[in-house]
Design a binder for these strands. Structure first.
Lengths: 210, 210
DNA sequence: ACCCGTCTGGACTTGCCGGTCCATTTTTCG
DNA sequence: CGAAAAATGGACCGGCAAGTCCAGACGGGT
């Protein structure tokens, strides 16, 4: 599914640019106004395109466009955590990553594009679920990788189950973000991150104290 | 805001029954088919009511009805965790509660009524945010209360910040549920719960091991 | 029996929004 | 340059679903 050109990938240079403009513009307006209330006309006017272009590049209609936006947003999620997420091999880097995550989602304010997107397109399209599933798997993998790096550096006990702990931390992040969206308070996200890292710290090879 | 009759609370006995029937029926159909695709006609046919009744009991239209359903669902969330959530004073009760939570959300399948609801009605209505905020506060409070009970029973170190740990655990639950919805895998939820409880166990007054 | 407020049924209106269609312009390529 | 393919503009359609309205049924209080 990754080597197929998906039909609309490369007709011409201009075409590709327009398509990209549509996806990015759609992502913006969706982030600002929410999926539920955004119409094709909103996207059209924001991106300076015409109805026919929308359907030219996304023959599947609105659903296909939303799916493309979801993929676009999903790609950004992990990118925005770099370079920290890629090198979680010391306590400092974990802390930096933690701050980057908090900052990213606090800035994003109260609109979770992805969350809303796959709640809208949701369980109908199998494609949507695949996007989320893959994103989560990669995310969890990177966290687990970082934990193993700590273990390799002798900072964390090898007894710790990195995959399981990474899953728990990831769940905490997701929930923290969700609660930031719905309550406007980032305290839950911070608590989840700090608590997760504390959990690692508590599993040092040499317990700091009794 | 809690002592005001909200105008439509008690016109007559029959009226109250009909109103309740509408809310419950709407909750059912929303859970089954999702907010995005559910129309007033779906609710109408499910509850055996007419259009005029819907607007008679919810003059504010669909939004007001959805809000009422959100409140209804929010009330169920904590109820469904009883009696365990109310008496988290031993390791066994924590475990029982943990199992109850997993079971509840695994059964619920892949439709998060509440989540979808306040993503739909969402940030527009201030009322929606209030419902979620209050639910989360109560939930967190109960968890923190349980943690303090463990402390009082000498099972957990008094040094532990119950409120913060409860916030982190709650975030983990929320994220775990969200990921259960979107990926279909309850592993994240279980990991979050177990990891959170482990975190408590690691803070026993007498460290189990070195 | 009566009256009045509540409750109910369902036809009707209205506006919106996804999707279609064709005419026109621009680009590519031999 | 010229033709074919791609890209673009925008009018138009059709359906659907929210919301309106009025006519009538019920039911309790005097």
């Amino acid at each position: 599914m990754s080597d197929a050109p998906t039909a609309k990938d490369a007709p011409t240079a201009k075409g590709r640019a327009t398509r990209a403009r549509i996806v990015e513009g759609a992502a913006e307006v969706l982030r600002e106004r929410g999926v539920a209330v955004t119409t094709l006309d909103d996207i059209r006017s924001r991106t300076g395109t015409s109805k026919s272009q929308l359907f030219h590049y996304f023959p599947g209609g609105k659903d296909e466009l939303l799916l493309a936006v979801a993929q676009f947003e999903a790609d950004r999620v992990l990118e925005d955590q770099q370079p920290h997420l890629g090198s979680l091999d010391s306590w400092e880097s974990w802390q930096q990553w933690r701050d980057a995550v908090v900052e990213r989602y606090e800035r994003q304010g109260d609109h979770c594009s992805l969350g809303a997107l796959f709640l809208q397109v949701g369980r109908l399209r199998p494609g949507a679920r695949a996007i989320v599933t893959q994103l989560m798997r990669q995310w969890q993998e990177q966290l687990a990788h970082g934990m193993r790096a700590l273990q390799d550096n002798g900072l964390v006990s090898p007894a710790l189950d990195a995959d399981r702990t990474a899953a728990a931390l990831l769940a905490g992040i997701q929930g923290g973000v969700a609660m930031l969206m719905s309550t406007g308070d980032s305290m839950y996200l911070k608590a989840a991150l700090d608590s997760g890292i504390d959990h690692l710290r508590a599993a040092t090879v040499e317990p700091v104290r009794a």
